[in-house]
Simulated assay, not measured.
Amino acid sequence: MMVYDSAATRARLLDAAYDEFVERGLAGARVERIASAAAANKQAIYAYFGSKDALFDAVLDARLRVLADLIPFTPGDLPGYAGRLFDRFAEDPGLLRLTWWKTLERPDASEAELAAHLDKSGELAAALGVDPERGMDALMIALAAAQAWSTTPPAIRDLGGPPGEGRRQRHRAAVVAAVGAYVATLTE
């Protein structure tokens, strides 16, 4: 007799859905492909998540929570935070692609996303001695800078010399320097 492991099935569905959503976005994703890749049936998706949209939300929540847990936010070192975000996006380009699909298909911030940004920007504003709006500006600039080089088309990235780890480190250094320069303007 085969023992059914619901936690394992749910985890396989989330992993398969992540791959499908990274590749095709919410609109292009198909529950049939997700179920097949997870060695499950379509009904399991509806039983665990209710809908494809809710599955997308679950994938976003799980992956973005992992990102938040892996990259500790240090309000006194925004350039370092941007560098660590850059590293994570470079290591897992699918994560960045998933966030872009979310932005394209669900442009409004979720309550959890908004709360996380408000918390971080508030801590940042306090650390820098600026108003909360400037704290949010600084946080968004750090996020945008961290994403910038990891999404630049290869033909443009490769203008700086041969590909490799040295180039990646130069790009990371540029991200850290740019965020550091912006922070310096706030604290002058």
Rank of each mutant, 00 (worst) to 15 (best):
S51W: 07
R24E: 08
D77A: 08
D69W: 09
A82T: 03
L26Q: 07
L70H: 14
E23Y: 05
E32F: 04
S51T: 10
A39D: 15
F86V: 04
A58F: 08
D61H: 14
F86C: 06
R24D: 05
D87S: 10
R33E: 12
G94D: 02
G25T: 04
K42H: 04
I45K: 01
W100F: 12
G76Y: 00
Q43T: 07
L98A: 01
E20Y: 03
R33I: 10
A44Y: 03
R97E: 03
A58T: 10
G25E: 04
P75I: 10
Y48W: 10
A62W: 05
N41Y: 02
F89V: 00
W100Q: 05
A35S: 07
Y48H: 15
I45S: 00
A27T: 14
K52E: 06
P93V: 10
P75G: 04
G25L: 05
S36H: 12
F21H: 02
K52N: 06
G50H: 07
K52D: 06
E91G: 13
L55A: 03
Q43C: 05
F49N: 01
A58V: 06
A47S: 05
I45Q: 01
V66H: 14
S36C: 06
A44D: 12
L85K: 00
P79N: 08
Y48I: 03
D92M: 09
L85N: 02
L98I: 08
R24Y: 13
I45V: 15
L78C: 06
P75T: 08
R88N: 09
D87A: 11
A27L: 13
R63A: 14
R24N: 11
A82Q: 06
E20A: 12
F73S: 08
D69M: 10
R84D: 14
S36Q: 12
A40T: 05
R88A: 15
A47L: 09
D92E: 15
A37F: 04
E32K: 08
P93F: 09
A39V: 09
Y48K: 05
P93A: 11
A90S: 15
P93C: 11
L70Q: 14
D69V: 14
A68G: 14
L26H: 12
D87M: 09
D57V: 13
D87F: 03
G25W: 00
G76F: 02
L67I: 12
L26D: 05
L55W: 05
R84T: 12
G76E: 13
G76S: 11
D19Q: 06
D61A: 12
L98Y: 00
L64P: 01
L78D: 03
D92T: 14
A27I: 15
D92N: 13
S51Y: 09
R33N: 15
F21S: 00
F86S: 01
F49E: 00
D77R: 03
P93R: 13
R65A: 15
E32H: 09
V31M: 09
L60D: 00
P72N: 11
T99F: 03
A47R: 09
F89M: 07
E20M: 02
V59C: 06
